[in-house]
C-alpha cells in the first residue's frame, strides 16, 4: 500500500513540471514564427485600424527581393499618409506634401526575437495559444499575452496557421475588453503580390520638386545614462533599452530620449528644456487607442511620456522623472 501511495504522490508532483515545458515552448514557437514571418513573407492586403469609434483603412504591401525587404503602408482615407520602408530606411509622407526620412537604427533589428526580450516577456506576461479561427478568410491561431499586473495591457494576436504572419492584433484592457485592433480584411499571400510600386516610389528617382522637400534624418546621439535623468518609480518589469539625445522637428535644442520596454510594450520619456520656442504645449493626458501621451512642465523642463500602456503607467513614469546628475 505504502509504495503505491508514494508513487501516486510522486507522479502527481511531476505531472505539471513535465507537461508545462513543452507547452510553453509551443506557445513561444508561435511568437518566434510570427517574428520571422513578418520579415520573410510576401503579402499585400487591406488593413483596418480601429479604436473607440474611429475606423481607418490602410493598404499594405511587403515584398522580398534581391535588395532585401520593401514595405509600403498607405492610408486610404483622408489626407495622404504613406510610409515606405526599404530594409532599415524609412520614409514618411504626410499630407503637407513633404517627405521625411525617418532614421532607424539598423543594428537592433534582427529577423529573430532576442533571448533577452523573451525572458522579459515571460516575466511580465503569460503567453498561451488559446483558440483557432478564421481571419480575412485564412485559418489562424490566437496567441494571448496575459499581463501579470495592471500596469500593462493584454494582447491577443491571430497568426496565420501556415506562415505565422500576424493577421489580427487586439489590445485588451484589464477587464479583457478590446480597446484597439488592427486586422487584415483582405490579404494576398505569396508570389502574386504587386511589385510595381517599388521602383515608382524610389526616392533616389523622386521628381526634383519632391526631392527638394526631402529632409535629412535627425542626427541621433547615443548616451549611456550620461544625461543624469532618471525615472525614480519605473513600473516593475520595464528595463531601459536605450538613452539618447535627439533633435525634434521645429525645436531648437535636442531632447533627451529614454526608452523602456517590458518585452511587448515600450515607454518613451522625452525631456526638453523650456525656452522661447517651447511653451510647454498642452500638458495633460491624451490617448489614441492603446497609445497614451502624458506631458507636464517640471521646473524649466517639458516632460513628455509616450507609451502603449495604461494611463496610470505613463503618469507614474512622468511624475517620478528627476535629475540626479551634476
Amino acid at each position: 500500500m505504502k509504495p503505491a501511495w508514494f508513487l501516486a504522490v510522486a507522479l502527481w508532483a511531476c505531472a505539471p513540471a513535465a507537461s508545462a515545458d513543452p507547452l510553453w515552448q509551443d506557445d513561444l514557437n508561435w511568437l518566434k514564427t510570427m517574428v520571422v514571418a513578418a520579415r520573410q513573407t510576401d503579402y499585400s492586403g487591406i488593413f483596418v485600424y480601429q479604436y473607440d469609434n474611429h475606423v481607418e483603412t490602410f493598404h499594405i504591401s511587403h515584398v522580398i527581393d534581391h535588395e532585401g525587404e520593401h514595405s509600403r503602408l498607405n492610408g486610404m482615407d483622408g489626407a495622404r499618409r504613406e510610409i515606405i520602408r526599404k530594409n532599415d530606411q524609412v520614409w514618411c509622407y504626410l499630407g503637407d506634401g513633404k517627405a521625411k526620412r525617418v532614421g532607424r537604427s539598423g543594428d537592433r533589428r534582427f529577423p529573430a526575437i532576442l533571448p533577452e526580450q523573451l525572458s522579459l516577456l515571460n516575466e511580465n506576461y503569460q503567453i498561451k495559444q488559446t483558440e483557432e479561427g478564421r481571419v480575412a478568410g485564412f485559418h489562424a491561431h490566437a496567441v494571448v499575452f496575459k499581463p501579470r499586473d495592471v500596469l500593462r495591457y493584454g494582447h491577443r494576436m491571430w497568426a496565420h496557421s501556415d506562415s505565422g504572419l500576424l493577421l489580427k492584433a487586439e489590445v485588451l484592457d484589464e477587464r479583457g475588453r478590446v480597446i484597439e485592433q488592427n486586422t487584415f480584411t483582405t490579404l494576398t499571400l505569396g508570389g502574386n503580390v504587386d511589385r510595381s510600386w517599388i521602383n515608382a516610389n524610389r526616392l533616389d528617382s523622386a521628381p526634383p520638386d519632391q526631392a527638394a522637400h526631402l529632409e535629412d534624418p535627425p542626427e541621433v546621439e547615443s548616451l549611456a545614462g550620461a544625461s543624469g535623468w532618471q525615472v525614480g518609480l519605473l513600473p516593475p518589469g520595464f528595463k531601459k533599452v536605450i538613452e539618447m539625445r535627439r533633435p525634434l522637428r521645429g525645436k531648437k535644442g535636442p531632447a533627451t530620449h529614454m526608452v523602456f520596454s517590458d518585452g511587448m510594450a515600450s515607454i518613451s520619456v522625452f525631456i526638453e528644456t523650456l525656452d522661447g520656442d517651447r511653451d510647454g504645449g498642452h500638458p495633460g493626458l491624451s490617448s489614441r487607442g492603446a497609445m497614451q501621451v502624458y506631458s507636464k512642465v517640471s521646473g524649466d523642463y517639458l516632460l513628455t511620456v509616450v507609451g502603449e500602456v495604461p494611463p496610470r503607467t505613463v503618469m507614474q513614469v512622468a511624475d517620478s522623472v528627476r535629475y540626479s546628475g551634476q
Binding site: L31, Y49, S71, L73, G78, E82, G103, N182, V306
Partner: peptide, 24 residues
Amino acid sequence: MAHHEFSPRADVQGTASYIRTVAD
C-alpha cells in the same frame, strides 16, 4: 515616430505597426 523606432511590436507586426504614428 521617435517612440516607434524602439517599439518591440514592430518585430511582430512589421510595417503595419506604423499605423499608430500616421493615423488620422
